[in-house]
Design a protein around this nucleic acid. Structure first.
Length: 119
DNA sequence: TTCCTGACTCCAG
DNA sequence: CCTGGAGCCAGGA
């Protein structure tokens, strides 16, 4: 029961949403990068789980800019349409072939490298 | 309450 | 090269 200050779980989700919203257009990042930035490198699965709930967040979260470490659109099947994610990425200048981002490293946006640790 | 699954990632074979 | 298993934390039945 977290009602006093043990709201880290909630903050984790909020941080994920906030961070994903900070991803510049035409850029993408990985679940692991987000998890690591938040301090939970092993919580990569939780990031994906948070993304599942991101679609109900306001303002909307650009979940299409979040892919796995291989740059593969692992979450495309969870979008309203399986092609929505790819279409959104290509609309931002990110080319996608075979459900995988071309020149992924070139489009990769590392929050730790760009934002660094607040601390 | 417990058990299972998951938009991930790493390591071993 | 590809496939399988383990670890991780949270939410749903």
């Amino acid at each position: 029961m977290m009602d006093s200050e043990g709201k880290r779980s909630n903050d984790f989700y909020q941080d994920v949403f906030d961070l994903v919203r900070l991803i510049p257009k035409g850029k993408v990042t990985s679940y692991g990068a987000i998890a690591r930035y938040l301090g939970s490198a092993s919580a990569s699965r939780m990031v994906g789980w948070a993304m599942n709930a991101s679609h109900k967040q306001l303002p909307p979260v650009p979940a299409h800019r979040v892919v796995n470490r291989n740059g593969m659109l692992s979450g495309k099947m969870h979008f309203p349409s399986p092609d929505a994610m790819q279409s959104l990425l290509e609309a931002e200048g990110v080319k996608v072939v075979d459900d995988q981002i071309v020149n992924f490293q070139q489009h990769f946006w590392n929050p730790i490298d760009e934002l660094g640790f607040d601390d």
